[in-house]
């Protein structure tokens, strides 16, 4: 009796599986019947193949993953080289000199070429000239602006007037206390004993709360990337969801 039942069930499953495969083939053939849809389907299938190939690493390292990884790295390197050629070398060097006749654009070109002398042991000192110019100009522009953006403005925002009568005031007071406690934890010139020790312990709690918030956001970011791929696989590719 059991054997009979097993046979019926297995046959039913096989029939269902067969139907499902037939439906899938119909979808594929249907997709190829319309030219526009077929191209979309082909590209989405290629993208789906690479998505699955990358995810296969989670099971274990394998050839499929390595192929997908190599293709991504290769395409990215090739794409970036051509992009730089067309967005930097052609408009800023070739067109300026050859098309517009601005010969003085040869000077930055020569400076750029000097960078390659780093590969020559005897003449590598020549590479220092463009680097000196680049670092000099870069630092001159960046240091004052970065100091303002990331240090002075942040100092000001830490030292806002605090009180206990409003939420904003309480928030400002908490910021001052917590920043000081966090800084004391990193102050190693005094032994972490007594009041300093207690403040440093509070400081480590503050830092841990900060790390916790960052970790929570990081988890959310990683899950978002997984969700993005699933939206693509189930939606754009298989059309199972909207």
């Amino acid at each position: 009796m059991n054997k009979v039942l097993d046979t019926i069930i297995s046959k039913l499953y096989i029939a269902e599986l067969f139907n499902y495969l037939n439906n899938c083939i119909d979808i594929v053939i249907g997709a190829f019947n319309t030219e526009a849809l077929s191209m979309e389907f082909v590209w989405n299938t290629i993208a789906a193949f690479f998505t699955i190939a990358i995810f296969s690493f989670l099971i274990k390292d394998n050839t499929l993953y390595k192929i997908a990884e190599s293709i991504v790295v290769g395409i990215a390197a090739g794409y970036f080289t051509i992009l730089l050629l067309w967005t930097s070398f052609k408009p800023k060097f070739w067109d300026m000199i050859v098309v517009e006749g601005k010969w003085w654009y040869v000077i930055p070109g020569i400076l750029g070429l000097l960078m390659y002398f780093r590969f020559n042991r005897k003449l590598n000192w020549l590479a220092r000239y463009p680097l000196a110019l680049y670092i000099g100009i870069g630092s001159g522009i960046a240091i004052p602006l970065m100091l303002q953006t990331f240090v002075i403005k942040q100092f000001k925002a830490t030292m806002l007037p605090g009180n206990l009568h409003s939420w904003e005031g309480v928030n400002n007071t908490l910021i001052v206390i917590m920043v000081l406690a966090g800084l004391i934890y990193f102050f190693f010139s005094v032994p972490h004993k007594g009041i300093v020790g207690k403040t440093a312990t509070f400081g480590i709690w503050v830092i841990m709360i900060g790390f916790g918030a960052s970790f929570g956001y990081t988890v959310m970011a990683r899950v978002s990337l997984l969700i993005g791929r699933i939206q693509f696989l189930l939606g754009n590719w298989l059309k199972l969801i909207e």
Partner: peptide, 14 residues
């Protein structure tokens, strides 16, 4: 991105 989110709250405060 969510990874960068927490570091930019400081710029909102300032």
């Amino acid at each position: 991105t969510a990874v960068s989110g927490p570091q930019y709250y400081a710029f909102l405060q300032s």
